[in-house]
Amino acid sequence: MIATPLHEMEMRKAYAETLVELADSDPNIVVIEADLGKASGTIPTFSEAHPERFIDTGVAEANMIGIGAGLAVEGFVPFCASFTPFASRRVYDAITISVAYADANVKIVGTAPGITTGANGGTHMCFQDLAIMRAMPNMTVFSPCDAWELASCVRWMAEYEHPCYMQMIRPLQPQVFGEDYAFDPHTAVRMSEGDAATLVSTGWMTQFARQAVSELAAEGVAVDHFHYASVKPFDEESLLESASRTGLVVTVENQSVIGGLGGAVCEVLSERLPTRVKRLGVHDRFGEVATEEYLLNKHGMNVEHIKAACTEGA
């Protein structure tokens, strides 16, 4: 059981410090915010380190995306952040046309994804960003699980010359990976081995999946657990190899079960290896003001639910 994290770090701290580090050596790195620079950590860390490359559009997310597109066409590498609903669904067409269709090298960061937005409630609780961003051609979609993976992901995004979308979690995250971790969007990370079930998680839910796996291991049940920081591109081969041995796949994500990680898993399996799948996540509901514990329980996606899904039919 993962009771005490070895180390914790806010992702936004890692985000801002990594961007400063990148910008120190790359004059093309630019940060654009839409009045949420403090929330994403770039104020004051980046804004003071590189004020000439820090842009705040005020509360105008579509304009943030469009300015990012213009800068990207000029060869800059803009990182644009806002709360997840405003960085994705609110500006979906601006991203689709000015960024993805125009192949403008813009990096979009959605902060406080899913139920982690807590007290801001239903208006701010976005459950569909992984799904809608995944459905967009020329877009890559990532959800790292800790600050170390996020830092590596940001470095990878800065090198990659096409559009990216990344979720960034607000609460302190327990350390999962170390300094030597290298983000690779083409390969899922195997967290544990076993034959009882294949457990697939991403982003914020990976910590709970790990805890479930650990508790199941103590009970003598070995689960094949994969962390998919990249929902697109999607590592099909790891999933297929595991599913062919376990015959049961459980997905868990801080999102709607429609179209996101669970959707990606079902698409792959239904075409290449029909396998029973249990999707944990939000089942076609809006969010609400509530604690994370309450919402995890309400939507059937806490540690106990994950354990039950992995042992279903056993």
Binding site: G66, I67, G70, L71, A94, S98
Partner: peptide, 8 residues
């Protein structure tokens, strides 16, 4: 907006 990006 893109033109603003060019100008920036």
């Amino acid at each position: 907006s893109a033109a603003c990006g060019f100008a920036m």
